[in-house]
């Protein structure tokens, strides 16, 4: 459905994103996981064609959706796609809703713009969608303002807006980060159900490996603007072959089943202006050798998964 190949992004002379590839099919969820500054939100913005807004440009690669390369799509055509066939759910529902406009008209606008519906048709559709999102009394909610609703409810409205134009692909950028755990569980369950019922392709961007383990079919692990490992979720958690993926999994407390000490990863995530040469992870990597500081690693493929590490062949068998 959506296939990104070797995507690179630049802002002037700095290149915060390079060599990112992934693909997602109908009824499938792919997780893009990484820490802050790893380029995961930038990937989302590239797919949405929003880079010019923040002064960035695509320097290479392709983004193929439904047979057409989006990197060559003129803005006018993009406008039809964005919020139409490709929906976006942002991290902070508090800022993606217009505080001065009632919920009903905000959601109606999507169907009016993208599906050419009249006001009555659009409202009927809005109420139907709110209903499928298990929002009680949709008609009443349509008459409310965002400030009268809780965080979880606002996030549902944002999801309703993304669904209103009947998209094929949904990009969710940290959809639950601003929410409490019990509400996070509700929203994750909701997204899961939507993927199955509507045969959506979902790109779930998150920093949380637990969310990936719970919901995704495939995962791309990003670090310093590059994909460092990708593959089916079971394979990546079972046999992580990139030291960064291994460390990222080891950073999460597992409650009682595991008493292993949390150690974290030495050092900090590099910023765009000081991306290391060679392998971007080498300054923090426990098994780095001379070659890691000079030569960028290529992907070593094993089955459906691949890791960009000079030592990927041995990394799982002998973790550093």
């Amino acid at each position: 459905m959506l296939s990104v190949r070797d995507l690179g992004v630049a802002f002037g002379a700095v290149e915060p994103l390079s060599g990112v590839s992934f693909s997602v099919d109908k009824g499938e969820t792919i997780g893009i996981v990484g820490e802050s500054g790893s380029g995961k939100s930038l990937t989302a913005m590239s797919v949405m064609g929003l880079l010019p807004l923040i002064g960035g440009r695509i320097t290479g690669g392709t983004i193929v959706f439904d047979g057409q390369d989006l990197t060559k799509l003129p803005e006018r055509a993009y406008r039809k796609l964005r919020g139409g066939k490709i929906g976006l759910i942002t991290q902070n529902p508090m800022t993606s809703l217009d505080p001065l406009k009632k919920i009903g008209p905000q959601v109606d606008d999507v169907a009016r713009l993208h599906l050419g519906m009249n006001a009555n048709e659009a409202r009927a559709r809005t109420e139907e969608i709110l209903g499928t999102l298990r929002i009680p009394e949709p008609a009443l909610i349509c008459d409310r303002y965002p400030h009268q609703m809780s965080g979880g409810m606002k996030q549902r409205i944002v999801i309703a807006m993304a669904l209103a134009a009947d998209p094929d692909v949904l990009i969710a950028d940290e959809p639950t980060t601003a929410l409490d755990v019990t509400v996070q569980a509700q929203i994750i369950r909701l997204l899961d159900d939507l993927v199955k019922q509507r045969d959506l392709a979902l790109v779930l961007i998150t920093h949380d490996m637990s969310v990936v383990a719970q919901t995704c079919d495939k995962v791309v692990v990003m670090y310093a603007g590059r994909a460092v490992e990708y593959g089916p979720v079971e394979a990546i958690f079972d046999r992580p072959r990139h030291p960064y993926t291994q460390a990222l999994i080891a950073c999460i407390p597992r409650g009682l089943d595991d008493t292993a000490r949390l150690t974290g990863i030495e050092g900090t995530v590099p910023t765009v202006i000081n991306y290391p040469k060679g392998c971007p992870f080498h300054p923090r990597c426990p098994r780095a050798e001379a070659i890691c500081a000079t030569d960028p690693p290529t992907f070593s493929v094993e089955g459906d998964s691949a890791a960009a590490c000079h030592f990927a062949e041995v990394a799982h068998a002998q973790p550093a």
């Binding site: 965080g151 019990t182 996070q184 569980a185 509700q186 383990a213 979720v233 409650g255």
Partner: peptide, 25 residues
């Protein structure tokens, strides 16, 4: 119990069908 069930484990084998709590605080 709800808090415990809403907390995901970083292990795809321990995936479970969440029956989320209705409503919010």
């Amino acid at each position: 119990r709800t808090l415990m069930e809403s907390t995901f484990e970083p292990d795809p084998k321990k995936r479970r069908l969440i029956a989320p709590l209705e409503g919010e605080v």
